[in-house]
Amino acid sequence: MRKSVLDHLLDWSGRIVLISILGFVLLPFVVVAIASLNDGAILSFPPKSWSLRWYANAFEYRDFGAGLVNSLRIAAVGATIALIAGAGFAYVFNRYDFMFKGLLNTVLMSPLIIPNFTIGLGLLILSTAASLPRSIWLVIAVHVVIVLPFVVRSVYVSLKNFERRYEQAAESLGGTPLHVLLTITLPLLLPGLISGALFAAILSFNEFTASLYVVNQRTQTLPVAMYNYVREYADPTLAALSVIYVAPVAAMLLLVHKFFRLEKVLNVD
């Protein structure tokens, strides 16, 4: 069948819309990436001369290194705690009926509605009232509260799609409930669990607003360190760091992708 003029028009306008959307989404990153190569000491766009020296500066600046280590530790520990707690909650929600189930669900999901700064401020007030030190565990606690709903959702969906017949077959073959959980349920849910945890780690790694309330000089995360830097200096170091910042997040996303694909493979019967 021959394409009419209208078909061609739709074809081209569709492509243009698609490219515009992609461009719009990527535009900030492109601008920052270009600005990071500016040789001058003032963040300006477009750059007049080119240099990589701000990248060197980003690597040398102490607060960034310490912030990165903090951020990675917080993300790793926070995501692990959120995974264990979230998977437990999701399992109980999926398998059992109990009083106040709906209420508990609402409470668990409330961090999706409550702004991050409220969560940070709330835990700050609480920890001060309880005379708790502003240690890294306080930051981790804040991050767990923020990412937990995402983990619960992710595991819950995996459980909902889980074929109960696998467990029943295993039980009929003499597997005790615990043995079935360890040898059948958990291995089959693993891709969902890992991608949930990585998603949580990425959210935690990017978190800024709530962290701002609960960190101190020693426990500040990378985003907070960047914020503090930009308040003092206006050079392109931050632009360079922003480009570097993409690397660990992209690595985590690639991992998630790998596991999502893996899950697909596992679901093939």
Binding site: Y166, A170, L266, D269
Partner: peptide
């Protein structure tokens, strides 16, 4: 079972 429920892993 109808879908056999063989353990895929």
């Amino acid at each position: 079972f109808q879908n056999y429920a063989l353990f895929p892993h």
